[in-house]
């Protein structure tokens, strides 16, 4: 029985807890992508860099707060700075929409044209972020490091294996749940949210019933800015902030959105967790887990790792292709236009 518990704790420590945290971050990112797709009807390549921009502003405000001696210990100061980051990102994306996307929206261009436009936006945002904060790693985490550390857990339970839960992981999950709950409340219960869903379902009918399209679009961008900033800051708190990694997050985020069904918010969340858990599970070395479960003397000699960690992109991608081949609209039927 202790062996079984130990095996479970190892699994929880290295697969379940990181998977849940990473899944929440991907889900928030994918929600942003999926909302843009549902309302503005294009695939936004610049989303990863929007996340980086929001995180960057939050980092600057965090540093300023830290310098001023403001602290909400044991929580990280970044949470206090988050609203400023969201506001700045909202201003940026609204300006981008006004000066770039609006022109093409009025012409009703093909979605692929908007995709190419978003490549230009990506270049600009990418340059902007690297120009302002530089390409290096930035650390801005403070406050208590662990909710429960490995040693405390071992003392509490007397097990051989410890379970560590980082504060950032706890915050990630709680923030993600609050954000998603607020988003769904907004989409399902408020007048604006209903207008957005109506606009997404049938644009002409929505216009006919007097919905102001430009307001719907503006509100969408603000929500997307909030989601992107929250996702970016949580990822940065949990791992570290580096502009380059945010660009690379694009692939798992898109995979999550597509696997769940583009345009479907519920699907984006599910997709985020599917991708995160597959990545973590397939690249984890199961040697110790199996070591506890099989009788003595039968422990595996190898690492029992299905894929090297560097192939985690391959995992998101493989799932993406499998889903697209067998269920082209995603696990939850997404929009098809």
């Amino acid at each position: 029985m202790t062996d079984f518990l130990n095996a479970f704790i190892v699994l929880a420590n290295f697969v379940l807890v990181p998977g849940i945290a990473y899944g929440s971050q991907l889900a928030l990112g994918a929600l942003g992508v999926t909302l843009i797709f549902a309302i503005l009807r294009f695939t936004n390549i610049a989303h990863g860099d929007t996340m980086a921009f929001g995180a960057m502003i939050t980092i600057f405000v965090t540093w300023a707060l830290q310098a001023a001696g403001v602290s909400i210990d044991p929580l990280p100061t970044a949470l206090l700075a988050l609203p400023v980051g969201i506001a700045a990102t909202a201003v940026l994306v609204l300006a981008t929409d006004r000066f770039v996307y609006q022109f093409y929206r009025k012409q009703k261009v093909e979605p692929v044209m908007l995709l190419i436009v978003s490549v230009g936006v990506m270049f600009v945002m990418n340059g902007l972020v690297r120009f302002i904060i530089g390409p290096d790693d930035q650390r801005f985490t403070d406050g208590e490091r662990f909710i429960i550390s490995s040693r405390t857990f071992k003392e509490m339970t007397g097990l051989a294996e410890g379970l560590a839960i980082k504060t950032t992981q706890g915050i990630t999950v709680v923030t993600a749940i609050l954000t998603v709950a607020a988003l769904f409340w907004f989409l399902n219960r408020t007048r604006m949210g209903k207008s957005m869903r109506a606009y997404s379902d049938n644009e002409d009918l929505a216009l006919l019933s007097g919905i102001n399209p430009e307001r719907v679009v503006a509100v969408t961008w603000v929500i997307v800015a909030a989601l992107a900033t929250i996702a970016g800051v949580l990822y940065g708190l949990d791992k570290s902030f580096k502009p380059f990694t945010y660009f690379h997050l694009l692939l798992p985020v898109f995979a999550a959105a597509i696997v769940g069904g583009l345009g479907n918010p519920l699907g984006a969340i599910a997709g985020g967790f599917v991708i995160a858990f597959s990545e973590v599970t397939l690249t984890y070395a199961f040697k110790r887990v199996i070591g506890y479960l099989v009788p003595e003397g039968m422990e595996p000699s190898g690492l029992v790792q299905l894929l090297a960690t560097d192939y985690k992109f391959a995992v998101s991608f493989a799932i993406l292709v499998i889903v697209l081949l067998f269920k082209p609209t995603g696990l939850f039927a997404g929009k098809n236009t």
Partner: peptide, 17 residues
């Protein structure tokens, strides 16, 4: 087209990996 874009982006990352 946009799925093809993400799919090719993924393939190229895998080749580099």
């Amino acid at each position: 087209s946009d799925y093809l874009a993400i799919a090719t982006l993924g393939i190229s990352e895998i080749i580099i990996a």
